[in-house]
Write a protein that binds this DNA or RNA. Sequence first.
DNA 1: CTTCATACCCACCAAAAGGTTAGTACCGCC
DNA 2: GGCGGTACTAACCTTTTGGTGGGTATGAAG
Lengths: 89, 89
Amino acid sequence: MVGGKWKLLILRQLYGGPLRLSALRSTIPDISEKMLIQELKILVENRLVHRENFGEVPPRVAYSLTDRGELVKPLIEEMIAFAERYERT
Amino acid sequence: MVGGKWKLLILRQLYGGPLRLSALRSTIPDISEKMLIQELKILVENRLVHRENFGEVPPRVAYSLTDRGELVKPLIEEMIAFAERYERT
DNA sequence: CTTCATACCCACCAAAAGGTTAGTACCGCC
DNA sequence: GGCGGTACTAACCTTTTGGTGGGTATGAAG
């Protein structure tokens, strides 16, 4: 559910609140638009991320963490902590 | 380093002390011998696992966690904790 | 009537991961 | 001499993942 190259990075960006697709794209520099949309779709299917469509033109869509998505925060933090422990060893 | 289908399962089995290849194989029922050896090789290269060869015939080899490998324990535990939180939601 | 911006889709391709099957070497055992 | 047990290797294949380059719709602005 959080595997693959991008999902954890996306979830981390959503820590601070809702973001639009374009904002996500610019904070995760190396991701392609297709991958971003594709991964977001999976995250939405797994109900870790909420997608809000404002039905405007030009389109406006915002992504945010669901309650379930919030549950992943300690995991991300532990991953960062592990990386730090590992590098010191 | 701990990604992929098997590495975390292998590391978890080594929690309790050294195990021989055949013992690992039987505690991780669905893994093929090739995958087990291949993944162990990567874990040894990353110095998370120690490989001890007793130089006997028939061959006897034991795998155990290194100090670095011990560092991954909290991460595994947090992953399990996340899975439990997730299932309750 | 062309251009722009936004979110998104589709067809295709390349690389990585995972898997199957067959084989190796060694020695003891019957 | 053939068989079993052990750790391991090699060749090959399939599935999954990641990536590229194009296209869509809409309405406003020029």
